[in-house]
Amino acid sequence: MLNYLWGAMLLLGIVYGAFNGRLPEITAAALDSAKEAVTLCITMTGVMALWVGLMEIARKSGVIGRATKKIQPFISFMFPGLPREHKAREYITTNIIANVFGLGWAATPAGLKAMEALKELEEERKTHPVGGRRAAPKGTASNEMCTFLILNISSLQLIPVNIIAYRSQYGSVNPAAVIAPSIAATLLSAAAAVIFCKVMEGRQSVWKP
């Protein structure tokens, strides 16, 4: 995906610029942007190191673990057909917590594991109903998969660390000013996702035993 997107951006820019006689500006922009990307990364490294370091303390001292326990009622509400002891539950929880605390790189592996575990859940459902549900047809997303992805994409996040780092790099008077509005926006989009999933799940009764 990114190969085409990136290629298209470059080709489009150069061809369009050539027709407008802006090739000198394009040369300057290419060189300046490359330099700027590195400067930006160096600024960002400080903020990221601070944040990940802090989160490491949170993880080791059990703050993250406790947050994981606290959201279990929410997980049960969103995934009523998922048994309490199923391993998909653990991965889903890890993924959501990692997203909330801005640990994106920890979120993706757990998310992929969650999808694998949900697939295994479907295999189990082929032999006997689990959580009051039969397996979805082959190659079709189960309700749990749909809910998990929609929740993931609604992008619950406590602190948008990257954005704050970028804002401070580009001279914001108060880089952190967007934290609470971002939380408000993310809560709204997550609420929309939750309502949507609940409505759609209610309509899907085909695979009930």
Partner: peptide, 11 residues
């Protein structure tokens, strides 16, 4: 950033 920079400079 180079790609976006070029797109911006091209107008």
């Amino acid at each position: 950033m180079v790609a976006v920079g070029i797109l911006r400079a091209s107008g």
